[in-house]
Design a protein around this nucleic acid. Structure first.
Lengths: 337, 337
DNA sequence: CTCAAATGTTTGAGCGCTCAAACCGTAACC
DNA sequence: GGTTACGGTTTGAGCGCTCAAACATTTGAG
């Protein structure tokens, strides 16, 4: 077993009767070593309980073998908890690729965040960053590609096609499309949309989700599309949907841009229905709240997205100059159990 | 500004006309350096944009200046998202203390998790671990103190007073006590408790929360305490509370052990009330769900807990032999807005 | 039988930092 | 005036690894 002093490359080498470098080769370039030697060295490694020193490796390779990701300051919306799954996915995929995940606390503003990222990279704490919660007016992608920092965004470069970079995103349009199909299958014929303010215009997560709904509705040809918008707040959503449902042409189903909105819509639907059948509500993000309320909801394949981020990053480590790549993953509709 | 080659201790030293070690001293032991020299060195540091190399430091000090924490596989309950806040708190407090936070993916079982932790520590990726979601039958604390790994648990060593270690926890009894007081203030007189199965017996998070309710109720002397238990599931909770409310001595308020339970209780209360005033429900964890439903809920000071974990760990780094310490932080009641 | 090309292994140097010990002036003391 | 003491600074060594080049040893071709 392991002696008290932690084993090093040298101690393992001595035990196996080879040189330091040969032990290193067994670990990093097994093909370079003759079979017999390799066996002997592996045995020595096993017996001594050798664990390579990460700092030493980092120093020699000038690579941190780690990526940084932001720990969000606080979640306001119900949908916040998808991040937990993302962290887990990153850590898992990272482990498989010899990358550790280091967390940095979200600073007060974007400028200091960029400083923090620079620091992480320059001190050799991380080789790259995974950006989350990117938006159209986000300064971070442009800055990072400018400073030559490797990164991958979880979220599309909305309206920034001039500044190409690696990204992974979930195809929101497909998600709302699935929601519409589901509702059509249920016999619903007037399927409204509850989205966020201003999501018709600029490209954004919201406009993407809205588009999926609109296209699916149009394809089905079920009459004039109804829609209403609200800030991401349960009470506001409830109010908005209540007025929609009190109208003459009240819809019999509502596709929502988030589970927060869906919760509001659900409450409004229940209230408006009275003794009748309430409008069917479909949410977005498949949070436990939707499950708890028995609502169908679009589930983002967060774990897969995290793995893809790692794939893009490792790919870029290998060939730093390959063109930027974007991956769109399709969500699935999670039905209530 | 910074030249192209990243600055090192040596390059800064040359620029300031001093030796390598003096620059190091300016950074780590400012008192050892004469004022004039210090100014000169600081200027050189600023001009060259010098950032100390973490790996080099780690190698020389044999300290990782990092702590590890587990990224949970997935959250089932509504309450899951408190972890996000915990991660942020750790990262923030860590940053203030020169500690980075590295994430490891929760493995399939506890045994491999212990391996992962050992690896992290032995490779020099982390100096210590913060354990989350500790339970009574948790093997990890005993193993880690056995192997001499520094750690701090977020969660009390329920029923393991024989194996003392550093921990931080939220005082659940105070939380449910606050809930009771709040309800008494509202004029409620029959305050029931909705808890988890088997939380009366063994010491646990559940029994702790129940105790707080029971003591507050007893102190108020408002009659026979009513209680009902359910697994942490909205539907199950709803059923359980429904039967409680249909009884002759139905309570006019319910204190819940979690927001998941509270959501179920809330739905049952609304249904049971008909045209009357529904029983007031108070949740636990102050998740967005409780806020969304307008329920009061006990908020765990997660951020504070995270900071305390870091405090305990840094304290232990300084004096490894000081006796184990446990800190209990009081929660607050978050009222609906 | 010689020389060149593979193949396998070792050597030397260096990554950028911190520790401990050595060094050097100058002030303090008898 | 010589010794001691001390604040301030430098030197040497080493943390454990990887790179590139050097070095053996074997093999194949001419």
């Amino acid at each position: 077993m392991a002696s008290h002093e932690p084993a090093t490359l040298d101690s393992v080498a001595a035990r196996a009767g080879v040189s330091r470098q040969t032990v290193s080769n067994v670990l990093r370039h097994p093909a370079r070593v003759a079979d017999a030697t390799r066996e002997r060295v592996l045995a020595a490694i096993r017996e001594s309980g050798y664990r390579p020193s990460l700092p030493a490796r980092q120093l020699a390779t000038r690579r941190a073998h780690a990526i940084a990701v932001r720990a969000e300051r606080q979640q306001d919306g119900i949908s916040g908890l998808v991040l937990d799954a993302f962290y887990h996915g990153l850590a898992e995929a990272g482990q498989d690729n010899g990358l550790r995940v280091v967390l940095y606390a979200q600073p007060a503003d974007e400028a200091t965040e960029l400083e923090v990222i620079d620091d992480l990279v320059q001190t050799g704490a991380a080789d790259a960053v995974v950006l989350t919660a990117t938006s159209a007016d986000d300064q971070r992608p442009a800055y990072l590609s400018g400073s030559g920092t490797t990164f991958c965004a979880f979220g599309r470069p909305w309206g920034h096609d001039d500044d190409p970079h690696d990204w992974v995103d979930v195809d929101g349009a497909v998600g709302t499309g699935l929601a519409v199909e589901h509702l059509l299958g249920l016999g619903r014929r007037s399927i409204a949309y509850l989205g966020w303010p201003g999501d018709g215009a600029e490209p954004s997560t919201g406009s993407d989700r809205r588009r999926g709904w609109l296209e699916a509705i149009s394809a089905a040809g079920t009459g004039t599309p109804l829609e209403v918008h609200s800030v991401n707040d349960v009470a506001a959503a409830e109010t908005a949907v209540a007025s929609l449902l009190s109208g003459a042409d009240a819809p019999d189903a509502i596709v929502c841009a988030s589970d927060t909105l869906a919760l509001g819509a659900h409450r409004a639907a229940l209230a408006a229905a009275g003794v009748g059948i309430p409008a069917t509500v479909v949410g977005f993000d498949a949070t436990p709240v939707a499950a708890a309320l028995g609502l169908a909801s679009v589930a983002q394949p967060i774990d897969q997205a995290a793995h893809l981020c790692i794939d893009l990053l490792t790919g870029r480590f290998e060939s730093p100059d390959r063109p930027a790549r974007g991956v769109l993953v399709p969500p699935v509709l999670r039905l209530p159990t």
